[in-house]
Every structure is written in structure tokens, then in C-alpha cells.
Computed example of a mutant assay.
Amino acid sequence: PKYISTDDVDPEFIAHEREILIAQALNEGKPRNIVEKMVEGRLQKELKEVCLLEQAYVKDGDITVKKYIENTAKNIGKDIKVAGVQRYEVGEGIEKKSENFAEEVAKQMGQ
């Protein structure tokens, strides 16, 4: 996700996405009054993809991350707030050691 919640989304990002979606809808030949409703629906869908709290919770796709956090906060009796996000990629930061097997064997044999 690019953002934690919809409140964190840059207004310029929303304006840019709105322009793109309006152009796409008009190119499809939709009437102007329908375009506005379509754009809002598509924009909300886009925000669900780029905002962590709006995404489906991985272990239960029926609820969002936001709902899961609310449920967990209620269960433990504490307020929970997502302060940040760190993305990790598998294998990132692992240095691959380059070794020459023949040299290693020769070294062990004392040569």
C-alpha cells in the first residue's frame, strides 16, 4: 500500500486519478451525469487498493484491516493506531556469498 488510510492520500493523487477516470468514462461514450457516479465508484475502488486500512485482511478476506484492528482493540481494551508501514521483499538485503568450490577444496587439502 502507498498510504495507511484514505485520510493520508495526497489530494493531487486523487485529482490525477479522477481526471484519468473521467477521460476513460467519456471515451466509453457514457453520458456526463453517469460519468460522475462511475468515477466516484472507481475512485473508491482504487483507494481500497492503495490504502492499507481499506484492504482485505489477509487471514479473513471478509473484513478489512481497519475492521480487524477495531475488533482487536475492542478485545484487548486498548486503542490501536497504525503509525507506519514497512515493506519487505523476499531476499532483500541478503548478500549472496560468492565462493569458488575448487579453491575451497584445495585450501582444505593444504595446497
Rank of each mutant, 00 (worst) to 15 (best):
E36R: 03
V9M: 02
E46D: 00
G84H: 06
I69L: 15
R32E: 15
I63T: 08
E92L: 04
H16F: 07
E19D: 15
G84M: 02
V105Q: 06
K59A: 13
E28A: 15
E95I: 07
T72I: 06
A15G: 10
K67T: 14
N75W: 01
I80Y: 07
T72N: 05
M109A: 15
G110C: 12
T72P: 00
K78A: 15
L47W: 03
T64M: 03
A15K: 14
D60K: 09
V105T: 07
N27S: 14
A106V: 11
E17W: 02
E19T: 11
L52N: 01
P31A: 10
Y3G: 03
L26T: 12
I63M: 15
G29C: 08
V50M: 03
G110A: 09
I22V: 15
K30V: 12
K2Y: 09
E95C: 00
E46K: 06
F13C: 02
D7L: 06
Q55H: 07
A106Q: 07
H16Y: 08
E70N: 09
I80Q: 11
E19W: 02
K37Y: 06
E70K: 05
Q111H: 06
F101L: 14
I63N: 04
V90D: 07
V9D: 02
E95S: 11
L21A: 04
R32P: 05
S98Q: 12
V35T: 08
G41A: 02
K67R: 11
E104V: 10
L52V: 02
V50Y: 00
R18G: 02
G77R: 07
M109S: 11
G29D: 08
K107P: 01
V105W: 05
A15D: 13
C51N: 05
E89G: 11
Y3H: 08
G91T: 09
I94T: 08
N75S: 13
N71G: 05
I14S: 02
E92V: 03
Q108L: 13
I4R: 01
L21C: 05
L52P: 01
R87D: 03
K2L: 14
A15S: 13
K66A: 12
A25L: 00
Y88P: 01
S5N: 11
V58F: 12
N100T: 08
K97V: 14
A102E: 14
M109P: 02
D62E: 13
E99H: 04
S98L: 13
Q86M: 11
V39Q: 00
E36Y: 01
K107N: 12
I34S: 04
A106Y: 04
S5G: 14
V58I: 11
A102Q: 12
D79K: 13
K74C: 01
M38Y: 01
V9P: 01
P1S: 15
I4H: 05
E49L: 03
N27R: 14
